[in-house]
Each structure stands twice: as structure tokens, then as C-alpha cells.
Nucleic acid binder design. Structure first.
Length: 572
DNA sequence: GCCGTTTTCGGCCCGACTGTTTTCAGTCG
């Protein structure tokens, strides 16, 4: 039982309790426990195994939830959850995806109309039975019918790359209006969370009408869902929804703070405001009627005795305490990056030659790269065997003479095979400048086997780094079942680096585990894994993930100069 | 259901918009 599985069951419990009309603070307690579990590096079962009181030491987990977690670990479910599932059919939860339907309305549909699925809801709405319910009327019924066929695709989160592309296109367009003085994206997109559920755009504009009109006409906008005096909600053609808020200039900082979130960060910040007899909302920080701050985010944080918190850290994972103690990290920036240690060429499945990749990297301001084509196990990617690899490295040596101003390391992305051996012989690996070991196949093996493979790779004297350690694909594929504390301890002991793979579909390590690796003193490398020249441009996503992990330039090996970086490589 | 330098009860962040009512509950972020 993995942490995410336990979290999912508690989240499901909360959903079902909501439909049942349970106390909202009780629901919040479950959601808060889910968050705690998702932010944990340690295996929850291991924590529980240490003793009865250990689970309740975790924030938001008391006696009751600790008991339920133990129950899940032992039996894969809880009696409470089984009872809830008995009472509320699974299809009822699908109705929550419809816009305008929350737990109360869904509860009414289920309890009073006995509707248990989207199909039954559609039928009930078509027959006009929905509008007969108290609290429902024709408009709600109409809205259900309009949205029900597309309901399955609602609520899908998109990758940070897709979200940023859309957000920037829209913001750039809105900025062209004369009536507009400021437009910025806030929300999870500004925090560079790996996926975004919607876009939050804030603007200062003389004419809210004009900017809302402009947004509704944007080519990316499919439909206007809501429109008031200061707020408009639209759906984009990719299914993502976007909120535009128009705020007064003197409130822009407070609004940015408010709408950047996260919710958990804001709850904590507003609690601090309350403690000081202040009230914080999107219009400013107030003492009674008097505005204390609001024009800039810095002002708002300062008025609460806090340093300005970089958006990527705003998850209530300790950043507020750091801001109070004036100990916020100076986060790594794109301009700190000097090297890229994971990329492919036409030798395996890349689209560009060694020289083209080197030139493209140089054009992007890098001073060193590693060419790391696939090993033979990745047969679909035309992976290299020992012989071809040696020839490939000879080619790299030739290219070194054809381009100046950039160093090229002879590397390999070497598969860790299912039997825990490496895909390239030690004799050949010994000749490499840089070896990234990765798991591509057998990701679903049990933890014991996965760990044997990872530890074997770490102990190999020629392996420099573990690439995309979990193998997860954001929103698509769960990563391998890794015992992270053991994994990181071994990497620390043997001096092996950990990669943050910057490809927005991977972002692997994730923020939580990258922070845990850093805490172990493991050097992190942020790499693009580019398969073309343009592929080098994903580096900002990796840097953003590193920032979310609280990493500083000193924690990231490829911020070093080439000679400093080479000194860090173990000499064996 | 959690939490506590107001500690075993009584709190628990805040506001816009919509639809259904006619002063407000629900939804949403």
C-alpha cells in the first residue's frame, strides 16, 4: 500500500461524507490529512510500524484518522468507507464534475430523486423531474443538460507547459488594451505546479467591460461561463477554465497574493492576519476599515512580519516559518544554469546531430553538455550497444574539434535492466565521462526488485546519476514503487547525483522528493532530456520544479562552472 | 475530525457570482 493509495481512499471518504452532508470541518480534516500524506517522503506504513503514536505526530492526523490509516494499511479499506460505499453508489460522485453541482445539490439529487449516475441524471433532467426539487429550477436543469455530455472531460488538469502557453498568450493579448495597466497570471500556474486545473488572471483596467469583452473574443476561448462586474469565467478550447478578475490598482498586490494561493498557504497567512487583529482579503490587509497594505505583495507580507515568499514555495510546507525567521532560500534561477547533462542525438532517437545539439546548447548560453543517447535495451529508440557506443563517443570527440565555447561530455543513458544489471558493460562505462542510469522497463515490479535495481546502479562505480528516478508520467503513469529514504541514503553514501528531469511530462524527481534528496546532501542535476534542439527549451520547467523544492543554486550541480562540475564527479 | 501560551470545548479564511427567492444557500476558487 503506497502513500498515494492511502491518500486516495481518505479523499474518497471525504467525497462520500460530503454527499452525506457531514460537517464541513470534518471534511476539511480528511482533506488536510490527504495533503499531509501526499507531502510525505517516508512510507506511511513504515511510519505506522514505528509505533502507535507516530502517525498522530503528523500534522492534521489525530487519533481517529491514525486509526483509519492503520486500518487501510492492514486491510486495504476501512469499515467506514465500506459503509459509505454501500450507502452512496460510485456513480453519484461523477455528478460532482458538473459545473454548478456541489455536494449539497448532488446529495439532494441522490436522496430525493434516487439518481445514481450521470445517465440517470440526464434522463431525470430530460423528463423535467430535476426542476421540481427544492433549490433547483429550470436554469439548473438546463445547465445540467448542456454540460452532461462533456462531463467526463471536466476537471482534467493540464500540464504546466500547456497552462503557461495558454496563460501567456491570453495575458499578452490583454496587455495590448489601452485601458489595461497590469495583467498577470496567478494561481497554480504562477506557482509552477506540475499540473493546473484552471487559470487565474488578474488585471488592473480602467474598463472592466472592455477587458472582459476582449477575453471573451480571444481565439483560445470557447465559451463564457460566468460574467459579473469584476469577474469573468471562461472555458478555453482545450477544456481548461480561466478566471479573469479586474481589481483596483491599490489592491493588485493583495489580489496577486490571494489568487496565487495555494489555499493552504493562504489559510495560514490569513490566520496570522487574524492573530494580529487584521483581516486579509483580495482587496488588501485591513485593520477595521483602514487599509494597511495591498498595492504590492511585498507590502502585504511585510505588514504580517513576513518576507516575500516566492510563489513556488507557497504550499504551507514550512515556508511561512522561514519567511518569519527571514530564512527563505535564495532559489535557483534559469540564469544560474550552465550545463545540461541529458540529451539525445540521431545516434539513438534524437532528431539532431551531436554538432547541432552542441550549437543549440551554446546558443542558449550553456557552457557544457553531456550527450546521453539510449542504450540497447531501448530498442524502439534505436539504443546503442557497447560497440556502437564506443563509435559514437569517437564521433563526439571529433565534434569537440569543430565547435569552441562549449564542452561536450561523452555520456550514456544506460538502462537498469529488469534483472538489476546494467545494459552496458563496465569496461565500456569506465570510458564514459558521464553515466545516467535509468529504469525504462519493468516499472511495475514490486518494491523489493525496484530497490535492488536502483541500489545496484548506485553501487556501480561508473554510474554518475540516476535519471528520471521514478519513471512517472505526469497525469498518466504512476512511477515505480521506491523506498525513497533507503534510495537517497544509498545515493548519498555513494556520491551519486539525482536528476530533476525538466520535461514537463516527467518533472521527475518531483518537488517533495527533490527536497528530500537535497536534505541528504545529494547533488541535483536539472536536465532537459532533449530529443531535438527545441527540446532544450524545457529547462525552465525543471528549474521551476527545483524552486518548488526550495533548491538554491548551490544545491544544483549544473549551476557550477565546467571545471567545478568535473571536480564534483567522483573519481573512481 | 483536528487542535490548544484562552487546552478537553468551541473554534476552524474570505468573497464573487448564480440561481432561486424575496434575504439566502450553494458553488467555486
Amino acid at each position: 500500500m503506497r502513500n498515494q493509495d492511502i491518500a486516495n481512499l481518505l479523499d474518497l471518504t471525504a467525497d462520500l461524507l460530503e454527499i452525506q452532508g457531514a460537517n464541513s470541518f470534518r471534511i476539511r480534516a480528511y482533506r488536510s490529512a490527504v495533503r499531509t500524506i501526499e507531502g510525505l517522503t517516508e512510507n506511511l506504513a513504515d511510519v505506522a510500524g514505528k509505533g502507535a503514536g507516530e502517525l498522530t505526530k503528523l500534522p492534521g492526523i489525530g487519533k481517529d484518522l491514525a486509526q483509519r490509516i492503520v486500518e487501510i494499511i492492514q486491510s486495504g479499506t476501512t469499515t467506514q468507507l465500506d459503509e459509505l460505499r454501500e450507502e452512496v453508489p460510485a456513480g453519484v460522485l461523477d455528478m460532482l464534475k458538473l459545473p454548478g453541482l456541489g455536494p449539497k445539490k448532488v446529495g439532494a439529487l441522490f436522496h430525493e430523486l434516487h439518481v445514481t449516475s450521470l445517465d440517470e441524471l440526464k434522463q431525470a433532467a430530460e423528463e423535467g423531474r430535476v426542476s421540481l426539487l427544492k433549490g433547483f429550477a429550470k436554469k439548473t436543469e438546463q445547465s445540467i443538460l448542456e454540460n452532461i455530455d462533456a462531463a467526463a472531460q471536466f476537471g482534467q488538469r493540464v500540464s504546466i507547459a500547456e497552462a503557461k502557453r495558454a496563460a501567456e498568450a491570453i495575458c499578452d493579448d490583454l496587455r495590448q488594451l489601452d485601458c489595461v495597466t497590469q495583467v498577470e497570471v496567478a494561481g497554480s500556474c504562477r506557482r509552477s505546479k506540475e499540473t493546473c486545473g484552471d487559470l487565474d488572471i488578474l488585471a488592473v483596467a480602467d474598463s472592466p467591460t472592455e477587458i472582459m469583452d476582449r477575453l471573451s473574443e480571444h481565439e483560445l476561448v470557447q465559451a463564457v461561463l460566468q460574467r459579473g462586474d469584476t469577474k469573468q469565467r471562461v472555458r478555453l478550447i482545450n477544456g481548461l477554465e480561466a478566471d479573469l478578475r479586474v481589481v483596483p490598482e491599490e489592491s493588485f498586490g493583495a489580489a496577486m497574493q490571494y489568487f496565487t494561493g495555494s489555499k493552504e498557504h493562504n489559510v495560514e497567512v490569513r490566520r496570522r492576519a487574524q492573530e494580529r487583529g487584521l483581516k486579509l482579503n483580495e482587496y488588501g490587509l485591513f485593520r477595521g476599515e483602514e487599509s494597511v497594505a495591498g498595492r504590492t505583495e511585498e507590502d502585504v507580507y511585510a505588514a504580517l512580519g513576513l518576507g516575500w515568499v516566492p510563489p513556488e514555495l507557497r504550499e504551507n510546507r514550512g515556508e511561512i516559518e522561514l519567511a518569519e525567521a527571514n530564512k527563505l532560500p535564495k532559489l535557483v534561477e534559469m540564469s544560474d544554469i550552465r550545463g545540461d547533462l541529458h540529451m539525445h542525438t540521431t545516434a539513438s532517437d534524437g532528431e539532431a546531430s551531436i554538432l547541432e545539439m552542441a550549437q543549440a546548447a551554446k546558443d542558449r548560453g550553456l557552457s557544457y553538455i553531456a550527450i546521453t543517447d539510449h542504450s540497447k535495451r531501448a530498442s524502439v529508440a534505436n539504443g546503442l550497444d557497447d560497440k556502437r557506443l564506443l563509435k559514437h563517443w569517437k564521433d563526439i570527440e571529433k565534434v569537440r574539434g569543430q565547435i569552441s565555447g562549449i564542452e561536450i561530455l561523452k555520456g550514456i543513458e544506460c538502462d537498469i535492466l529488469e534483472d538489476a544489471t546494467l545494459d552496458i558493460s563496465d569496461e565500456v562505462l569506465a570510458e564514459a565521462d558521464w553515466v545516467i542510469a535509468v529504469i525504462h522497463y519493468g516499472l511495475k515490479q514490486p518494491r523489493k526488485q525496484i530497490m535492488e535495481r536502483l541500489l545496484n546502479a548506485i553501487k556501480n562505480p561508473y554510474v554518475c546519476a540516476i535519471g528520471h528516478p521514478s519513471g512517472r508520467i505526469v497525469n498518466k503513469r504512476q512511477g515505480a514503487d521506491i523506498d525513497y529514504p533507503e534510495f537517497f541514503q544509498a545515493a548519498a553514501d555513494y556520491g551519486v547525483f539525482m536528476e530533476i528531469n525538466a520535461n514537463p511530462a516527467r518533472l521527475d524527481l518531483d518537488d517533495i522528493h527533490a527536497a528530500a534528496a537535497r536534505d541528504k546532501g545529494i547533488p541535483i542535476v536539472i536536465n532537459t532530456d532533449a530529443h531535438s534542439c527545441g527540446g532544450l527549451d524545457v529547462m525552465p520547467y525543471g528549474v521551476a520544479q527545483a524552486r518548488r523544492a526550495g533548491l538554491e543554486a548551490k544545491d544544483v550541480a549544473n549551476t557550477r562552472t565546467y571545471s567545478e562540475f568535473c571536480k564534483m564527479l567522483r573519481t573512481s
